[in-house]
Structures are given as C-alpha cells and as structure tokens.
C-alpha cells in the first residue's frame, strides 16, 4: 500500500516537472513576443539604428544584414572542411591512435566555451593579422565554433548510408573516393542539409565569439554599393560588423534598462527568435523534401 502511494506521488511529480518545463518555454516565448512584436515595423527592419542613448530607436537593417552575411561567409569556410573531415571520420579513419587523438580533439573543440574562441580570434584574426575587427575574423571564429558540429553531422549522415550502396559502387570498380562523393554523399545529403541548417541557427544567435572579432560597431552601410572592396559596401569582408545578437548585448550593457534600450532589444530579440525558429522548421522541411526527391525519381 505504502509503495503504491509513493509510486503515485512519483508519477505526479514527473508530470509536474514536465508541465513546469513546457510552461517555462511558453513563458519565455510569450515574453519575447509580447515585448517585441509591437515594436516591429517596416522602418525597424529597414533603417539604420538611431542613437538609443539619446532615445532614438531607429532600425536594425545593418545588424540583420551582418548576421546573414556572416552566416554565409562562415558556411562557405565551414562546409568544405566539415565535409572533408566528416568523410575522413566516417570512411577513412582506421581504428588506431591517431583516430583516437582526433576524436579527443573534436570533443575538446566542441566543448570549448565560445568566449574562449572569441579570445583566440581576437589574438589571431584581430591583433596578429592586424585586420582589426572584421567580418572575416568573425567568420573564422565562428568556423572554429561550428566546425566540430559540422564534422559530426557529416560523419553521422555518411555512416547512416546503407552499406549496400557503398558495396554496389565498389564492386563496379569505382574508387572509394568516387563512391563517397558520387554515391554516398548524395544519399547522405538530407542529413547533412538538416544538420547544416540547424547549425546555422546556432551560428545566427551566437554572440560571445563575435564581441572581440567582428566587433560591436557597424560602419554606415551604403546598400547601393555592392563592390566588396569599397569601405562602405555591405559586402566588404574587412569591415567591422555587429550582428543582431551582439547588438542586443551592446544595447543592454551600454544603457541599463532605459525605455529605448528595452524597445530596441525587445524588437531585436523577437526577430532573432523568429529567424532561429524558422531555421529549425526549415531544416526539417528541406531535409524531408530532399529525401523524397532522392528516393522517388
């Protein structure tokens, strides 16, 4: 009887925990929506920021652009290395000491605090190269942040390819490398795409690695100038670029809880959450779509 009573209480407790966690999430999202949605306007999305210390809200256009641009730059660097590394881990790594060491490296790298990666980036890409705060430095720092995850995504996607596919190609006298690139990678593509977009969501929200690499400021961008070598061009990779996440942090640490700061960061946080959630949903849908195309004509 006693044991049964305890059992019932335990079940009740587990339900309570589950509900608590779900309510926490709803609360967090609700808070962001309530404190953000009313500030969203076309101007907010398309105008440069005002000086919020003086009470001007302005917009977040450059920050939003920087976030996406930085994401694209990071992916351009990360994808080839990540796919190469993932292929090595899945197909070429032999069970020996080097592979063990490699796995330890991946593990260490994926658990590094992002502020440490930021410090390393500051040292190497800002001070040592003499670039100062640049998009390129930020992209390289984010690459370090993202690379271990990308390698793991690719490795898992390739390992999940049916062995029969690999054997079929090998038995036709196709080299291992061509088997990987022409047969296995296309089959692994849905997994890689899903993983890459989920990683993109993570990059999009990252700020600590960027504070000291891409910087806290953004020059006045001229959105009609698309020459990457020009100073005011949005595409110039060697200019400082505060992203949306960095901007939220900066607004809040510059001006403690003023009305304007609340509006700017509330609106920005709302946009940030929306983009990250969209990435998550998009990742699942695109992965499923590619898988369907692949298996049926």
């Amino acid at each position: 009887m006693n044991a049964k009573l305890i059992d019932r209480f335990a079940t009740l407790f587990f339900y309570a925990v589950a509900i608590l966690i779900i309510c926490t999430l709803i609360g967090l999202l609700g808070y962001i929506v309530i404190h953000g949605i009313s500030y969203i306007s076309w101007e907010f999305l398309t105008e440069p920021p005002g000086s919020y210390i003086l009470g001007q809200v302005g917009g977040i256009a450059p920050q939003l652009f920087n976030s996406f641009y930085l994401l694209i730059l990071t992916m351009i660097i990360t994808l080839p290395i990540g796919i190469g590394g993932g292929i090595y881990m899945a197909e070429y790594a032999k069970p020996n000491k080097f592979t063990k060491f490699l796995r330890l490296c991946m593990e260490v790298m994926s658990s590094l605090p992002s502020i440490i990666i930021g410090l390393f980036g500051l040292l190497l890409f800002v001070q040592y190269t003499g670039w100062g705060y640049t998009l390129a430095g930020g992209a390289l720092a984010l690459t370090i942040f993202n690379l271990p995850l990308m390698v793991r995504v690719v490795e898992q996607a390739i390992t999940a390819v049916p062995r029969e596919q690999k054997e079929a190609a090998l038995s036709l006298g196709v080299t291992h490398w061509q088997t990987i690139t022409k047969i296995m990678l296309p089959v692994a593509l849905p997994g890689i795409v899903t993983g890459a977009i989920l990683a993109a969501g993570r990059i999009f929200g990252e700020a600590a690695a960027l504070l000291f690499t891409a910087g806290l400021s953004s020059p006045n961008l001229d959105f009609t100038d698309w020459d990457p070598t020009s100073v005011s061009s949005p595409l110039n990779p060697f200019r400082p670029a505060a992203t949306l996440s960095v901007y939220i942090w900066k607004v809040n640490s510059d001006s403690l809880s003023t009305e304007t700061a609340a509006i700017v960061s509330g609106g920005s946080a709302f946009i940030l959450i929306c983009v990250v959630l969209l990435f998550t949903i998009f990742a699942r849908l695109l992965g499923r779509y590619i898988y369907r195309r692949l298996t049926s004509s």
Binding site: E164, Q165, E167, A169, S171, G173, V174
Partner: peptide
C-alpha cells in the same frame, strides 16, 4: 588495383541495391 580487378570481376548482392 582493386578497381581494375572489380571491373573485370562483377558482383551482384543479396539485397537488390540499385543506386538512388
């Protein structure tokens, strides 16, 4: 080289395994 050999000696498997 194994690739040259396998071109010369073909193989069919237990489970039909056409490429995707």
């Amino acid at each position: 080289h194994a690739t040259g050999l396998r071109k010369h000696v073909g193989m069919v498997f237990q489970k039909p395994n056409p490429f995707y």
